[in-house]
Each structure stands twice: as structure tokens, then as C-alpha cells.
């Protein structure tokens, strides 16, 4: 299932292989963040999401983020996976697993990873609503709530 520690996949993400990968006898803590497809955003209903990536560059950027984390929090071990394609409500879109000897580093490093992913990794999300669709990014624009309820 898990082929490499920093990867883009099209199949559903299973959590346990990433926990197993980061865990070793020197580690006393593992944090796992899973980002899921949300149905309701500011009162607007999402039907599903479509993710696209520049796969080789995205995997390279994920690995760079992992290296940044290991430099900032020595002793941690990291795995990051992002799914692309058509994802439905509550599916896992992204998973970040971080292990560390003590819990603080695992919590801090995990949050750093999702912030960096949203900044530099070439992955794009298109939201498909009942009333239309939109690539999410700088031009982020949700339909007016009233339009949806008409």
C-alpha cells in the first residue's frame, strides 16, 4: 500500500502503514493528522472534490518539507501522503505522520507540515457544488449562501 514516505496516490489512504513506517523503538509519540473532504463550508454544500497534482514535483516538495522538519525537530521521522482524483465527503485527502522521542516535537512538526503543504506543494483542489464548480486558490470564491438555498 505505502510505496514511499512522501507520495501522491490515487487510491484511498490507509492510516496504519504510515504509523508503522514512522514508529521505531526510540520513539515515544506519534501524531497523525488526516485532512478530510468537508461537506459544508460557510453554509455551502460541497458534492465532491477533484484534486490534481504535478506529481513528480509534488513528491519532491513533500520530501523537502520532511527534510525541513527533521532539521527543525531532530530525531523525528516523517511520512506524508496526499491523494488526488475524485474524492468524496469524509475521504482522507492528506495524511501526515510524525514520530518523535517525546510528544511536543511530534505535535509541532505535524502542524508545520500542513502549513507548508498549503504554501508550496503543487496540488490543486476543485470544489464541485450543487450550483457549479471552482478551482480553489487565490481566486477563492464561494457562491453566496442565498444562491444555494434558492
Amino acid at each position: 500500500m505505502m510505496k514511499k514516505p512522501f507520495e501522491i496516490v490515487t487510491e484511498p489512504i490507509e492510516i496504519q502503514p504510515y504509523i508503522d513506517y514512522v514508529l521505531h523503538p526510540y520513539q515515544g509519540a506519534v501524531t497523525v493528522f488526516t485532512g478530510h473532504v468537508r461537506e459544508w463550508t460557510h453554509g455551502v454544500r460541497t458534492l465532491y472534490l477533484s484534486y490534481e497534482a504535478y506529481v513528480p514535483m509534488a513528491e519532491k516538495k513533500l520530501a523537502e518539507i520532511g527534510a525541513e522538519m527533521e532539521e527543525k525537530w531532530p530525531g523525528i521521522k516523517v511520512a506524508i501522503v496526499h491523494r488526488i482524483g475524485e474524492l468524496h465527503i469524509s475521504d482522507i485527502a492528506v495524511l501526515i505522520a510524525v514520530s518523535s522521542p517525546h510528544r511536543k516535537a511530534a505535535y509541532e512538526a505535524n502542524e508545520y507540515a500542513i502549513d507548508r503543504i498549503k504554501e508550496v506543494v503543487p496540488i490543486w483542489k476543485k470544489e464541485i457544488w450543487e450550483t457549479g464548480e471552482q478551482w480553489i486558490g487565490a481566486q477563492k470564491k464561494y457562491p453566496e449562501q442565498g444562491e444555494v438555498n434558492k
Binding site: V121, P122, W124, A138
Partner: peptide
């Protein structure tokens, strides 16, 4: 060259 719109992963 890749033309990269504002990213929106996560």
C-alpha cells in the same frame, strides 16, 4: 516549464 496556479492542497 510548468505553469503553476495558486496551490490549494491539504
Amino acid at each position: 516549464c510548468a505553469i503553476i496556479p495558486p496551490v490549494s492542497g491539504g
